[in-house]
Design a protein around this nucleic acid. Structure first.
Length: 454
RNA sequence: GUGGAUGUAGCUCAGCUGGUUAGAGCACUGGAUUGUGGUUCCAGGGGUCGUGGGUUCAAGUCCCAUCUUCCACCCCA
């Protein structure tokens, strides 16, 4: 026997039933994006490695799926490099394309390349799969969909507020209780400045980001391990332990880091966002979290992360502002802000909470039984009429046994079965069976159509 | 990349301290029922026990390696 077929680690097939659920998520998200006047674009699954490399940090480069060149790609490698185990050089020689790691960097590339035809500020959305060579685990896949919305070419904080409104709108519709966490990169910068350790900013941010997960003590421990002095850790304490409501946090932050220009700017920006949100009808909790860092180091302003209240699965949505993302591609000083919704995690949450709507409408409303050659030719005409009246209908392709055809209809959860046999052909009265109730009626076609549509 | 668990029929699993021909439920196919499904009854097909090596008279069972899936870390949607 042939070997069992399989799919690559961390990838999944989606059955028709799963796709109904997935499309519910995508449709909801897409509708909101469009409702808020964002335009759709798509970019290729693969990008040049030069576009992707170095944009996600060292860790990100490791997680990039690389594609080997076509043709005789071995020609370009020298034996010396292989023997020396010079992985970077060898990969560079044999691979110049990779699968996209997210949608933001390809978007930045797109903006730079099409800058002359884009109307700024450019509000776009993009729903496509991305790939990461990560080790799969709960809520983490190697192929998954991101739903990105970004505004590029506007520094206004109204954009942040709009993103928060969209996040609230989408999760409200999906009936997931979420908390939207906000921070600002400038606050983190301010913190690093105040404690006099600006070069340690990455260490500090990624460490205090874990505070909810590992606790205060472990955070201190890790900070020590990362080479922070006892003195600076002491200075960090009031910031790490900062609690209370948003306004209280902002006031404290202002006191602690307001003397730095970055810090005071960050606090002001968050204040403005919070003030605007107050006058709007937002149902999700919006919390300022000075420990929120997020990994990607291109964020320069607002940082946003959305967590489900009832399921522990990591963030469902995340993003932030990046002042100069297009700079690396040769278009400086274009500010953008955006978030990305993780459709696969949202799926897992809806599944775990069992709150998918059960309006799973059957694909087929009516199935026509095939009684044989003459009858099926006639049925084909009925099929045409039914479909033209907006009914999803299908004719069983083979003149199989009635039982088999009924079983097919039953398994597919078809709503009605129409039986156009010899007798019906003569009289023009057709038997229509309701598969849920088992009731059967005999009527003319026009009446049946209104029955099905009704 | 690091650590732990796992793998038996299409699916969910049983198979004790190694011992004839590896089981169940569900699913599948056929029949009871040649124009009526979902219920019931009967019959049937399907497994080189993840893969490769080793120990043993004997391996689904023990050992090693490798892959898969899952969980945690790193990181992240």
């Amino acid at each position: 026997m042939a070997q069992k077929p399989s799919i690559p680690k961390g990838t999944r097939d989606f059955s028709p039933e799963e796709m109904v659920k997935r499309n519910y998520i995508f449709d909801t998200i897409r509708a909101v994006f469009q409702h808020y006047s964002y335009q759709n674009i798509e970019t290729p699954a693969m990008e040049n490695l030069s576009t992707l490399m170095g944009k996600y940090g060292e860790e990100g480069d490791r997680l990039l799926f690389k594609i080997v060149n076509s043709g005789d790609y071995l020609k370009k490698i020298s034996k010396k490099d292989i023997d020396a185990g010079n992985i970077n050089k060898v990969t560079a020689a044999i691979s110049e394309k990779g699968l996209r790691y997210d949608l933001t960097v390809p978007f930045a590339r797109y903006v730079v390349q099409h800058r002359n035809s884009i109307v700024f500020p450019f509000k776009r959305y993009q729903i496509q799969p991305v790939w990461r060579a990560d080790r799969p685990q709960k809520g983490r896949y190697r192929e998954f969909y991101q739903c990105d919305v970004d505004v590029i070419g506007s520094g206004s904080l109204l954009n942040e507020v709009e993103l928060i409104r969209m996040i609230d709108d989408i999760f409200k519709q999906l009936k997931i209780d979420v908390v939207i966490k906000l921070n600002n990169r400038k606050i983190l910068t301010g913190i690093a400045e105040v404690i006099n350790a600006p070069e340690k900013i990455t260490d500090i941010t990624t460490t205090i980001d874990k505070i909810d997960k590992i606790g205060v003590e472990k955070v201190y421990e890790e900070l020590r391990q990362r080479g922070l002095s006892e003195e600076t850790i002491t200075m960090l304490e009031p910031i790490i332990n900062l609690g209370g409501d948003n306004q209280k946090r902002l006031n404290c932050l202002k006191e602690l880091i307001g003397i730095t220009s970055a810090g005071s700017q960050g606090v002001d920006e968050l204040q403005e966002i919070i003030d605007l949100i107050k006058i709007l009808d937002i149902s999700a909790d919006v919390e300022i979290d000075q420990a929120l860092a997020r990994g990607l180091n291109y964020y320069t302003g607002t940082i946003i992360e959305v967590l489900a209240k009832d399921v522990n699965i990591g963030s469902l949505c995340g993003g932030g502002r990046y002042d100069d993302l297009t700079g690396i591609f040769g278009l400086p000083d274009v500010s953008g802000v955006g978030v990305s919704f993780g459709a696969d995690r949202i799926y897992d949450v809806l599944n775990e909470l069992n709150i998918f709507p059960d309006h799973q409408k059957a694909v087929t409303q009516v199935m026509l039984v095939n009684f044989g050659k003459k009858e099926s030719a006639f049925a084909l005409q009925l099929l045409e009429i039914l479909q033209n009246s907006g009914i999803s209908a299908e004719l069983f392709p083979d003149a199989a046994k009635m039982k088999k055809q009924m079983q097919y209809a039953n398994k597919k959860a078809v709503q009605y079965v129409l039986l156009p046999g010899e007798e019906e052909m003569k009289t023009g009265l057709y038997s229509l069976k309701n598969m849920q109730t088992g009731e059967q009626v005999k009527k003319v076609l026009s009446e049946l159509i209104s029955l099905i549509n009704g």
